[in-house]
Design a protein around this nucleic acid. Structure first.
Ligand SMILES: NC(=O)c1ccc[n+]([C@@H]2O[C@H](COP(=O)([O-])OP(=O)(O)OC[C@H]3O[C@@H](n4cnc5c(N)ncnc54)[C@H](O)[C@@H]3O)[C@@H](O)[C@H]2O)c1
Ligand SMILES: NC(=O)c1ccc[n+]([C@@H]2O[C@H](COP(=O)([O-])OP(=O)(O)OC[C@H]3O[C@@H](n4cnc5c(N)ncnc54)[C@H](O)[C@@H]3O)[C@@H](O)[C@H]2O)c1
Lengths: 208, 208
DNA sequence: CTGCGCTTGTGACATCGTGCACAAGTCGGT
DNA sequence: ACCGACTTGTGCACGATGTCACAAGCGCAG
């Protein structure tokens, strides 16, 4: 099988995870690994890993396993992480700032090219070497900077409006952190990371 | 059906979502809603919502729909959000501080009772009215404060060690933000919120 | 009290995701 | 050159998840 069918989110997320684990192995100096060893080490499923990889071709050597460097490299290109992706952060509050700082360190495949807020005390100031624009300039700045992915870290009440401003500005994907159910635009790939819901799930299982 | 079987994460997360949407309806003054209206308004599935609720009993009135207040109240107790849950935050960097601040505002069902770090410049200082302890005191402070859920926001390299310190200290659940695959303790309910993997999923689908 | 329209709760069905087991294939030793 | 030990890639079966369609139930009008 090559790559005609649409890949599921679950598979894709696991591929990212595999890559991360492979990098750990690289750091440890491991050059070869079998799916069994890999799975045991990282508490994953060996057969599932093989099946995930099978969506994209053959990566291993029967009888031997996988060459760590090789698999890592192929996963990197496969996931598009060998290219640089331009990010815009909308909402430079405590979360937005943390994200911006985090991405500045970890700048391998992602690069922040624009930041937005509405707070007069923040607009015009710099975060690192990046000036914070006013949100009303989203339609102008997004195309200029060629931002492809937007990170939404504004209050829930502003999220939908910002989302729509972003979509009409030609953004290709949005990662939303606001605890709200966005009315999605079909042409923009949208995901939400919902801290609150995850916390509530844990709370459900507590004894008292 | 009442509640013998284990409820799936997916269902549980949607229940949290429904509750959040119901609160929006309450704020808007809506008193009654049918699953169809609800689903259309929030871009959800009506039949799935009914099935999710069915795990826990009957909540609606046939021919009429649901009373918003009533359903919200029942979901709140059902999810355990009428009780206060004690949180500990481990790793008071930019993300940990953002989370602490966020939870201090949004303090309805969650209350931060302890904070930890190893950085000498942070330990002993206060965040709000809460003193930051040294991580080595986790085994002492967690039981004292009766923290039930820990939020892990330390660097990936420290995550496994902190996780284990927490588990032996009697924590009941952990929400991990570090980009690493934790070796899980079976008695501790553990979830990860993985910003990086979500970002990489979006990147995969970008055109260029 | 009866009938009608509406909505829930639910069983049957379709789809999707995962675990299992094994044939196909590779390598190293003899 | 062949064998045996090992691992991948994969077909199959099972379980989980979501959709559909409808009987059961409720309220209101007459
Ligand atoms: N730990 C956290 O802080 C955390 C965790 C999970 C989710 N969230 C969510 O992330 C979002 C941001 O959280 P936060 O803690 O950073 O809040 P915050 O109040 O610190 O920051 C919000 C920022 O958004 C800006 N803003 C408001 N309206 C805007 C608009 N229309 N356009 C651009 N910027 C605008 C504000 O000026 C502010 O700087 C919230 O929706 C919150 O629920 C936060
Ligand atoms: N936007 C973000 O900042 C962001 C987003 C997603 C995930 N994350 C992840 O969350 C974690 C924290 O991110 P951050 O940006 O806050 O990093 P940070 O460097 O700002 O903060 C990390 C904090 O953890 C403390 N620490 C280190 N070892 C510790 C230990 N053993 N016990 C207790 N505390 C310890 C450090 O002193 C520091 O204060 C990282 O794993 C990061 O990958 C961060």
């Amino acid at each position: 099988m090559t790559e005609p069918a649409e890949i599921s989110s679950l598979t894709l997320n696991r591929l990212s995870l595999y890559l991360r684990c492979l990098r750990q192995l690289q750091d440890a100096g491991t050059t070869h690994v079998s799916s069994g060893q890999f799975a045991q080490h990282f508490e994953l499923s060996a057969s599932l890993m093989r099946k995930d990889l099978a969506h994209f071709g053959e990566f291993g050597i029967r009888g031997t396993g996988y060459r760590v460097d090789d698999l890592a490299a192929r996963l990197t290109t496969l996931l598009g992480l060998d290219r640089i992706h331009n990010l815009a952060v909308v909402g430079m509050g405590s979360l937005g700032s943390a994200l911006a700082r985090y991405l500045s360190f970890n700048d391998k495949p992602f690069r922040i090219v624009a930041a937005f807020d509405v707070d007069g005390r923040k607009v015009g100031h710099k975060i690192g070497h990046l000036v914070i624009h006013h949100s009303r300039d989203i339609p102008e700045v997004i195309p200029q900077t060629e931002a492809q992915i937007a990170v939404l870290s504004v209050p829930a009440s502003a999220a939908q409006q910002c989302y729509e401003d972003l979509t009409v500005s030609g953004i290709e994907a949005v990662l939303n952190f606001a605890p709200t159910q966005l009315k999605q635009h079909p042409a923009v790939r949208t995901k939400s990371v919902d801290f609150q819901i995850n916390l509530e799930e844990l709370a459900y299982f507590l004894s008292s």
